[in-house]
């Protein structure tokens, strides 16, 4: 029932705009993959091509070995949740959820059972007779999800399903969505421009930029060992430090990093997360604090050093606070990371 997905060389242009180019991706059965990228990078276009709403210019889409890219959307058996929810405004919640089952010619009895079951799954049983306009955004979102999963799709596509909700609700629905997906085991592709949402939900994240895939990996790998500057900066904040490797020593703009394991060769770009960058007051320090920001859970220091502007974050009640102007030395993690796919500066 649940399918694996194989996409090869997908391309779509709108006039002069190349919306998606050379997009290839494999998704395992039951896997949860997030497409992450800035607005306008082609995420929706990919989803629409998989669902059959937009025809690709080139490429293949295969579900469990069956080519679907030439099938009409109604033949693909793919569940789709739109950013706008796209609930049918003239139908009650129950009729919205029943729609796909009715199109599949199930009996009234079967439909009633399935609708009740699905509404219970998304915790909307008591709203079955409401019209969509009588629901809040979060409730509409749940109904849209119920409508898509009621048909037991081979693949579930979610296009920014949480982006119209406020922050608190978004977090809660995110957790519910994850639990539901694990429970049903539906292969899912989830589109978002929110990196924390992508990392919280997905088994694997596909980072996109300007119509193309930049990097694919688990949330942990992409966050800790990104290969590109784009990924490093799109997933949270990072400090990019140009450096040189000479005779097994790491040379930064302000001097040698003592004790650093040699990595790469010649010019490299180091990527150090603000929470990994340590800070200590020292009169001989090469850097000085230019700004201190209290963020609640964390304190952020900005440090000017050898013409670079770096950030350091520390958390907890006892996190030290250094006033602006304090001379500081920086400490780096033992396993330094550099952006291996980034051309040297």
């Amino acid at each position: 029932m649940v399918a694996n997905v194989q996409i090869i060389g997908l391309r779509k242009t709108f006039g002069p705009t190349v919306a998606v180019d050379d997009f290839s991706l494999t998704v395992a059965e039951g896997e949860f993959v997030a497409l992450l990228g800035p607005s306008g990078c082609g995420k929706t276009t990919v989803m629409r091509m998989i669902a059959g709403i937009t025809d690709p210019d080139q490429g293949q889409i295969t579900l469990s070995g069956q080519r679907i890219d030439a099938l009409m959307p109604e033949r693909r058996h793919v569940g789709l949740v739109f950013q706008s929810y796209a609930l049918f405004p003239h139908m009650s919640v129950a009729r919205n959820v029943a729609f796909g089952l009715k199109m599949r010619r199930q009996t009234a009895g079967q439909i009633a059972v399935k609708v009740a079951e699905t509404l219970a799954l998304v915790d909307m049983s008591s709203y079955a007779d409401r019209l969509p306009r009588e629901l809040s955004g979060g409730q509409q979102q749940r109904v849209a999800l119920a409508r898509a999963i009621a048909i037991e799709p081979r693949l579930l596509l979610l296009d920014e399903p949480l982006s119209n909700l406020d922050a608190k609700l978004r977090e809660q629905l995110r957790d519910d969505l994850k639990a539901l997906q694990r429970r049903l085991g539906i292969t899912t592709i989830h589109v978002t421009h929110d990196q924390s949402e992508a990392m919280a939900l997905a088994d694997r994240v596909v980072v996109m930029n300007a119509g193309a895939i930049v990097e694919v990996g688990t949330p942990r790998d992409l966050y800790q060992t990104p290969k590109t500057r784009f990924t490093a900066q799109f997933l949270g904040h990072t400090n990019i430090i140009p450096a040189r490797v000479q005779f097994g020593r790491m040379i930064t703009p302000w001097g040698e990093l003592l004790g650093a394991a040699p990595l790469g060769a010649g010019a490299v770009q180091l990527s150090v997360r603000p929470e990994d960058l340590g800070l200590a007051a020292c009169d001989q320090g090469a850097g000085h604090v230019t700004e201190v920001t209290f963020l609640g859970a964390e304190v952020e220091h900005r440090i000017a050093i050898a013409g670079l502007m770096l950030r350091s974050r520390s958390s907890g009640r006892d996190a030290p606070v250094h006033p602006v102007g304090t001379k500081v030395v920086l400490s780096f993690p033992a396993d330094l990371h550099h952006l291996s796919q980034e051309p040297a500066l």
Binding site: A51, L80, A86, F99, R147
Partner: peptide
């Protein structure tokens, strides 16, 4: 009528006639 409604219906299994 928003185009997304029509696409949603199609992906739920409705033919253009339906």
């Amino acid at each position: 009528i928003p185009a997304d409604l029509i696409f949603a219906a199609r992906s739920l299994g409705a033919t253009p006639f339906k």
